[in-house]
Design a protein around this nucleic acid. Structure first.
Lengths: 231, 231
DNA sequence: CGGGAGCTTGAGGAGGATCAAATCATGTGG
DNA sequence: CCACATGATTTGATCCTCCTCAAGCTCCCG
């Protein structure tokens, strides 16, 4: 961490109608008249490398269109480590979850000198009628699933990945879960079929899981949790 | 691959108003009257493990709500290998990209016995007014970015991951690109800071990249491509 | 000039990949 | 019903990649 906080610089209010990258951004298909609806201030920000755009669990009040530069989205692991789950570039939107959730789910941090415009979620809500809420929820879920896969299933040792996979295969209170073929396990965790098989076998031998029928397992959730988070 | 193709079984037309998991699915907040708009047939399908719901590049005509079971979304790598980039469970939607794209972007395959309902994209379009298209595009982009990170940056050897990262850091025709700190490179690729540093150094020594200023590189795109895809 | 952060390099060991073979499960045809 | 082919899973032996721990280096800033 740097000595003094790296701060974003306020650049002024944006004029969406004259935006240079308008075809890339959110308001691409708005007609001139619609801009009347946008009365809330849309700010232009400039951020130096290392400057955070938002932090996880911070109240989600704005979405941000990346006009220039590069951002990382990072999340924290149970063992205190962190994992970058996505990169955002020109035209991408940071903090879309604001539309459907209360809090941001990542830290968004500039990796290069970057420009964003900061749009209050109310502006989006005002332009977005009813049905779409549910559709947005689904998109949101799709993104979260994907980030979950990166964070939980593509990070750490093969043991940890398998333990986390077993943790995810059924709700936390249901001890029973069904597994799929070792080859798919490998492709999902980014390891080989053989390693997947070996680790599953080792879990069985140490009774962390018990095979009650072919590929149907009884889980020791406490033990799995412990492995998932180990150093 | 199994001897004869694993096929989905058609179960009948769905009755959305009496859906048991309605609060989970797409039409959760539709009022009774709105169902009049849905005149296109929504089918219920049952799929055995291994049955494909759709294939990459297939025309995207439907979205699918998972009512029961488990699906994988997989994509193929330049070297012919495959990578599972997400898992879908009850309530998740497979093939959301149909709303904004012509073709599916993954293979969606059942990992367990599963039930889905298959909704023509026209039904969604009919219920979804204008502005949201652009917003949907943004969600779509968010999902694709995330899958890209898993597929390109969390798969294969450290050398391959670095090569793919350098490939992504600027448009294909711009040879010049800017890199960020080694610690962030590590957190992004799921490797240690030291390994990130070592591989970057090795790329420099073999002139695959040339450092023209601190963290500003000139890329040999052909060489990077070659490494990214090597067996 | 001294301190600190980030980057590089080294040595050693652990974990996972690779190659190969044995076992097990399933379905097929005789 | 059995013999056999096929594919998935398990296990073993070996090698190589990458992690770990540690030290030196460079650059920037006070």
């Amino acid at each position: 961490m740097k000595e003094h906080e790296i701060e974003a610089a306020w650049q002024g209010l944006a004029s969406c109608e004259r935006c240079q990258i308008r075809d890339l951004v959110l308001f691409a298909d708005l007609a001139g008249e619609d801009f009347g609806v946008i009365h809330l201030p849309i700010e232009d920000l400039w951020l130096p490398p290392g400057a955070p755009l938002y932090q996880p669990d911070q109240a989600a009040t704005h979405i941000h269109t990346v006009r220039e530069g590069l951002f990382k989205l990072e999340q924290y692991l149970p063992d205190g480590n962190r994992r970058i789950v996505s990169l955002l570039r020109q035209g991408d939107v940071a903090g879309l979850e604001a539309i459907v959730a209360d809090r941001y789910e990542h830290a968004a941090v500039a990796l290069q000198a970057s420009k964003v415009c900061r749009i209050p979620k109310d502006v989006v809500a005002r332009l977005s009628p009813k049905l779409n809420r549910q559709l947005m929820n689904k998109w949101h879920e799709a993104v979260r699933r994907s980030h979950e896969c990166t964070r939980e299933l593509s990070t750490g040792s093969a043991r940890q990945r398998l333990a986390r996979l077993f943790g995810l295969l059924a709700p936390p209170l249901v001890p029973r879960c069904r597994l799929f073929g070792r080859e798919d396990v490998g492709a999902l965790l980014g390891i080989t079929t053989e390693t997947a098989s070996r680790v599953v076998a080792e879990f069985k031998r140490s009774s962390i899981i018990t095979e009650v029928a072919p590929n149907l397992f009884e889980r020791d959730l406490a033990a799995l949790e412990r492995i998932a988070a180990e150093g």
